[in-house]
Measured scan of single mutants.
Amino acid sequence: ESETFDVELTKNVQGLGITIAGYIGDKKLEPSGIFVKSITKSSAVEHDGRIQIGDQIIAVDGTNLQGFTNQQAVEVLRHTGQTVLLTLMRRG
Rank of each mutant, 00 (worst) to 15 (best):
E1G: 10
E1C: 10
E1D: 15
S2E: 15
E3W: 13
E3T: 15
E3V: 13
E3N: 13
T4S: 09
F5L: 05
F5E: 03
F5G: 02
D6F: 08
D6N: 15
D6I: 09
D6T: 15
V7R: 01
V7I: 12
V7S: 00
E8A: 10
E8G: 06
E8V: 12
L9Y: 06
T10W: 02
K11M: 05
K11Y: 04
N12S: 15
N12E: 10
N12L: 04
N12P: 12
V13D: 14
V13G: 15
V13N: 14
G15M: 05
G15F: 04
G15H: 06
L16G: 04
L16K: 01
L16M: 08
L16V: 05
G17D: 01
T19Y: 03
I20R: 03
A21Q: 13
G22Q: 15
G22E: 15
I24C: 14
I24Y: 12
I24N: 14
I24V: 14
G25D: 13
D26M: 10
D26E: 12
K27G: 14
K27T: 11
K28C: 13
K28P: 13
K28T: 13
K28G: 13
K28H: 09
L29H: 13
L29T: 14
E30F: 08
G33A: 07
I34S: 03
F35Y: 15
F35H: 07
F35K: 04
K37L: 03
K37H: 08
K37A: 09
S38H: 11
S38W: 05
S38T: 10
I39M: 05
I39G: 04
T40A: 14
T40I: 11
T40Y: 07
T40P: 05
T40G: 10
K41H: 09
K41R: 10
S42M: 11
S42A: 10
S43G: 14
A44C: 12
V45T: 10
H47N: 15
H47G: 10
D48S: 08
D48T: 06
D48V: 04
D48I: 04
D48C: 10
G49L: 03
R50P: 03
I51P: 01
I51W: 01
Q52N: 08
Q52K: 13
I53M: 06
G54C: 03
G54I: 00
G54R: 02
D55G: 02
D55L: 00
D55P: 02
D55I: 02
D55M: 01
Q56L: 04
Q56D: 03
Q56S: 03
Q56A: 04
Q56T: 04
I57E: 03
I57K: 03
I58W: 02
V60I: 14
V60L: 02
V60W: 05
D61P: 00
G62K: 11
G62T: 03
T63P: 00
T63R: 13
N64V: 09
N64Q: 10
Q66K: 08
Q66L: 11
G67C: 06
F68H: 09
T69W: 00
N70E: 15
Q71N: 10
Q71A: 14
Q72T: 06
A73N: 00
A73H: 01
V74G: 07
V74K: 15
E75D: 13
E75G: 07
V76G: 02
V76E: 05
V76Q: 09
V76H: 09
L77P: 00
R78Y: 06
R78W: 06
T80G: 06
G81S: 09
G81L: 00
G81Y: 03
Q82V: 07
T83V: 09
V84N: 03
L85P: 01
L86R: 00
L86C: 03
T87E: 01
T87H: 04
L88A: 04
M89D: 05
M89E: 10
R90I: 02
R90A: 03
R91K: 11
